[in-house]
Design a protein around this nucleic acid. Structure first.
Length: 104
DNA sequence: AGCGCGGCTTTTC
DNA sequence: CGAAAAGCCGCGC
């Protein structure tokens, strides 16, 4: 059990395979902080390796794209998701529930 | 060493 | 659908 969310979050994200996605809340929950989704988002925002860390595979729990502090904003995030095979329409992930990866 | 702020959110009205 | 409020952690001053 890692107390530090940041480290834990990064590891979890790295575990997410291509074509799969997850949510901030789930990650926060996996870290033991169900209400720490926001904190998780911040860690991703300050993540040292934007593309290396598949932060674009993380979306809102409601299926919306959420946000992206990197260059290109959510547009780039959507682009990356589509490249990996995730359908995104109107800033929302299609069938994101089926793509959710919660087998950490 | 201590305090305050911000953020890729989430939930409810 | 759009807007507002709430709770969490690391970093900077």
């Amino acid at each position: 059990m890692i107390n530090i969310l940041k480290e834990h979050v990064y590891k979890l994200i790295k575990k997410i395979p291509s074509g799969r996605i997850s949510t901030y809340k789930i990650l926060a929950r996996e870290c033991g902080n169900p209400n720490g989704a926001r904190a998780v988002g911040k860690y991703l925002s300050i993540n040292p390796t934007p593309i290396i860390l598949p932060c674009h595979r993380i979306v809102c729990s409601n299926g919306s794209i959420g946000g992206y502090s990197g260059v290109g904003g959510v547009n780039m995030k959507i682009r990356l998701l589509k490249i990996e095979g995730v359908n995104v329409i109107n800033n929302k992930v299609i069938e994101f529930e089926k793509l959710l990866f919660h087998s950490f």
